[in-house]
């Protein structure tokens, strides 16, 4: 069905709200995992860190405060229901405007600058930002928006390795572990470790990023990849890095792998880390302008 004209301003407001809400309300699966990690932690310093995490989570929810100062790079994954008929350029524009309105109206720190001049427009937007991924959802009649304000402490720890077929799965295991240990305290552990396997270099990193947005408890549907997720998860949590890298029992909240097929000569692996808050918000917007928020 063709969306009415007021659909686009609705998307704009929704994106504004997604940005602001994502910074204040940590997803319930993450809160649960932090609580559980705090309860089983054996190290005194690590328990002190977890107590601060839980205090800030509560302040975000109960006192409408921003939990972390990093407002991140705004990233949207937009699933367009195949039954919707809409103007894609207007949709992208509405998403950008929503991002800018969140920044100016709340106000939020604008964390986006030009790479060489370091000019900051104070809008959280610029060339290529926000990042918007469009996808199409068969038989659906709504717009599904998943938003992530990606913080730089963890984003700066991203890495790609174009392994070769002879490196095999063991090469993948070595690389992931090396990257997590190399990142140490910097990405604000415990992290969600997003791993991309296969594809081209760019797709591999996109898969790693998307993997970090998966809810905790989800497994890759492929049993071999799910087993690899579990094996890496146990390995990473045996390193002792702990919260804030000060030593402790929990270094990763999860390892999520997303994969694509690749070239006969390629064996790419990408790692993208997500910090302990793992902020994400979701909204479903129907053609008649109804909005349903989730995570």
């Amino acid at each position: 069905m063709e969306v009415p004209d007021d659909f686009y301003p609705r998307v704009e407001e929704t994106c504004r709200d997604l940005y602001i809400r994502s910074l204040k309300e940590i997803p319930p699966d993450i809160v649960e995992a932090i609580r559980a990690a705090a309860a089983r932690e054996s190290k005194e310093v690590a328990r002190r860190i977890f107590a601060a995490y839980l205090e800030s989570i509560a302040l975000g929810r109960n006192r409408d405060m921003i939990v972390c100062q990093d407002t991140g790079i705004p990233i949207y994954w937009v699933g367009i229901g195949s039954k919707l008929r809409l103007d894609g350029a207007r949709l992208a524009d509405a998403i950008r405007r929503g991002t800018e309105r969140a920044t100016c109206e709340h106000p939020l720190r604008s964390s986006i600058v030009a790479p060489l001049t370091r000019e900051n427009r104070q809008t959280s937007t610029g060339e290529g930002i926000p990042i918007i991924h469009f996808d199409f959802v068969p038989d659906a009649d709504a717009l599904d928006i998943l938003f992530m304000p990606k913080g730089s402490g963890s984003e700066n720890m991203s890495s790609l390795k174009m392994l070769v077929p002879a490196d095999g799965v063991n090469g993948i295991k070595r690389f992931v572990l090396e990257q997590v240990v190399g990142a140490g305290a910097k990405p604000c552990p415990p992290t969600i470790v997003g791993v991309g396997v296969g594809g081209s270099s760019d797709l591999c990193m996109a898969l790693a990023k998307k993997a970090t947005a998966r809810p905790l408890g989800s497994k890759n549907p492929d049993t071999q990849l799910a087993a690899l997720e579990e094996e890496l998860f146990n390995a990473i949590n045996s390193t002792g890095i702990g919260p804030q890298g000060l030593g402790g029992d929990t270094t990763a909240l999860a390892v999520h792998i997303e994969s694509a097929w690749t070239h006969i000569t390629c064996n790419p692996v990408g790692v993208n880390l997500q910090c302990w808050r793992a902020e994400r918000r979701r909204a479903k917007v129907t053609a008649d302008g109804k909005v349903e928020f989730g995570f």
Binding site: E55, S56, R63, M65, V67, C68, G153, Q244, C275, R277
Partner: peptide, 13 residues
């Protein structure tokens, strides 16, 4: 002195 990263709400107060 290590500040608890990401737990800024508490630090803001």
């Amino acid at each position: 002195l290590s500040v608890t990263g990401g737990a800024a709400a508490g630090q803001t107060l």
